[in-house]
Write a protein that binds this DNA or RNA. Structure first.
Length: 425
RNA sequence: AGAGAGGUGUCCGAGUGGUUGAAGGAGCACGCCUGGAAAGCGUGUAUACCCGUAAGGGUAUCGAGGGUUCGAAUCCCUUCCUCUCUGCCA
């Protein structure tokens, strides 16, 4: 979440940033923040002063008692009695103000980077670049939901039987393809200096809040109620939370982690015509990269990550484009997001396969993820970034669709060592 | 799931009501010493919030929350977590 001083020191920037996101009622909410914060500080000052007085009296009582001057001690005890009541009242008011402030800050999204275009819908996203050739397919080309049946590699009906819609069962070469992609992505990331981690895929509430899924996306995560644990919607949550309550030293930068996990999303209310087949699932596999950087280096890192993700798409031979998301389409916690979309030639649609974002200090503020400067003794919030590298299902969809021929589906060259076969036929 | 033990600073570890932000040790940093290093000696070494241009000062924090008390790491209650053993199981 934003820090109060961000709002106070850059009021106009924050205001116009929120306007870019079409965030309603911004001025009013920001004013409330400042007001409550002022109240909070006034209350704290008053409380601290009284507490200081009370502390010094207590010390004096201690001294009197040691000297055996009970009467003197009793005399000044009366004063602390008064103070005690006042402090209790101030304490209550302080925590109310603090809680109000927190709740208010939770509702405010991150401020978009200056390069983020204004806009409301995905149509307003900016196409940064397009790369690769859209394949010319033969007459009888099929969308992937037909291809997977034809070659019997992914079974949705079986998934329905054991879990429900949106939980596919990968079979035979379909399952092998999943495993190959995961290994390929992990190996590539390792070569780029990302340290592999295998985090838990259930997380506690605190972790959900720290990376911003809670309270914003409460209803979108599966909750294991018996233990109050959430199934992760992305590895971003556990991996970034590895660094919750951590004070790094400057020499630790940049931290680069990669992890493969299944991801779980309830996708409540988002089913429609465009979500057939692998386009939208409740459970899917994803390899995620996370970076934690010095504030001065985060945009450099973002470009880095974007190029890295693009390199994967190039190696897989998939035509793709890079979008800079507009204010209205960007995630709640992000300051700048690039979406990578691959072209799926039978559906004739662009499919989002990666989203690479810089959160600046929005997450690290909740995470309490800081670093200590080399000269300065003060701690500073680090910047966090993450991106999919990559999400599997839509990659699979476009591989299947784009590489289909009359005699089968040709696998991308780079995957063949991982797969042990060249064709799905 | 049952029984027990425990949660203190970067780490180890002391501390059962009164200058305890917290002994002692280790680590780390700087200085002295040295040809250089080690050892030795000395100094320093938490975080958050608030007041202040600053220097500096205040408050809080010994898992978390509440209570008793003039005063709590220390007593009481609640809760979370970890470890060990038993049971169950991959």
């Amino acid at each position: 979440m934003l820090q109060v001083h961000q709002i106070k020191d850059n009021y106009e920037t924050v205001l116009s940033g929120l306007a870019k996101r079409n965030f309603p009622n911004a001025e009013n909410i920001l004013q409330q923040v400042l007001e409550i914060d002022q109240k909070r500080r006034d209350t704290q000052l008053e409380r601290d002063q009284l507490q200081a007085e009370s502390n010094s009296i207590s010390k004096k009582i201690g001294q009197y008692m040691q000297q055996g001057k009970k009467e003197d001690a009793d005399k000044i005890k009366l004063r602390t009695g008064e103070i005690k009541g006042l402090i209790k009242d101030l304490e209550t008011r302080y925590s109310i103000a603090e809680e109000e402030l927190k709740q208010l800050l939770y509702t405010i999204p991150n401020i978009p980077h200056s390069s983020v275009p204004a806009g409301k819908t995905p149509e307003d996203n900016q196409v940064v670049l397009e790369n690769g050739n859209i394949p010319q397919l033969y007459e009888g080309r099929l969308p992937h939901w037909d291809l997977i049946k034809k070659y019997d590699i992914i079974d949705f009906d079986l998934g329905v039987k054991i879990a429900g819609a949106g939980f596919p069962v990968y079979k035979g070469k379909g399952a092998r393809l999943q495993r190959a992609l995961i290994n390929f992505f992990l190996n590539e990331a390792a070569q780029q200096g990302y340290m592999e981690v295998q985090p838990p895929i259930l997380v506690n509430e605190e972790s959900g809040y720290a990376t911003g899924q809670l309270p914003d996306k409460e209803g979108q995560m599966y909750l294991a109620t018996a233990d109050n644990l959430y199934l992760i919607p992305t590895a971003e949550v556990p991996i970034t939370n590895l660094y919750r309550d951590v004070i790094l030293s400057q020499s630790d930068f940049p931290i680069k982690n990669v992890g493969f996990t299944p991801c779980f999303r309830r996708e409540a209310g988002s089913w429609g015509a465009h979500v057939r087949g692998l386009n939208r699932l409740h459970q899917f596999d994803k390899v995620e990269i996370v970076q934690i950087t010095h504030p001065d280096k985060s945009y450099e890192a973002l470009e880095d990550m974007s190029l890295y993700v693009q390199s994967l798409l190039q190696k897989l031979g998939l035509p793709y484009r890079v979008l800079r998301l507009c204010g209205g389409d960007m995630g709640f916690t992000s300051a700048l997001t690039y979406d990578m979309e691959v072209y799926s030639a039978a559906q004739e649609r662009w499919l989002e396969v990666s989203s690479v974002s810089n959160f600046e200090t929005y997450q690290s503020n909740r995470l309490k993820l800081r670093f200590k400067g080399e000269e300065k003794k003060t701690t500073t919030l680090a910047h966090t970034l993450n991106g999919s590298a990559l999400a599997l299902p839509r990659i699979v969809a476009s591989i299947l669709e784009n590489n289909q021929t009359e005699k089968g589906i040709r696998m991308p060259e780079v995957l063949i060592p991982y797969l042990g076969f060249e064709w799905i036929d």
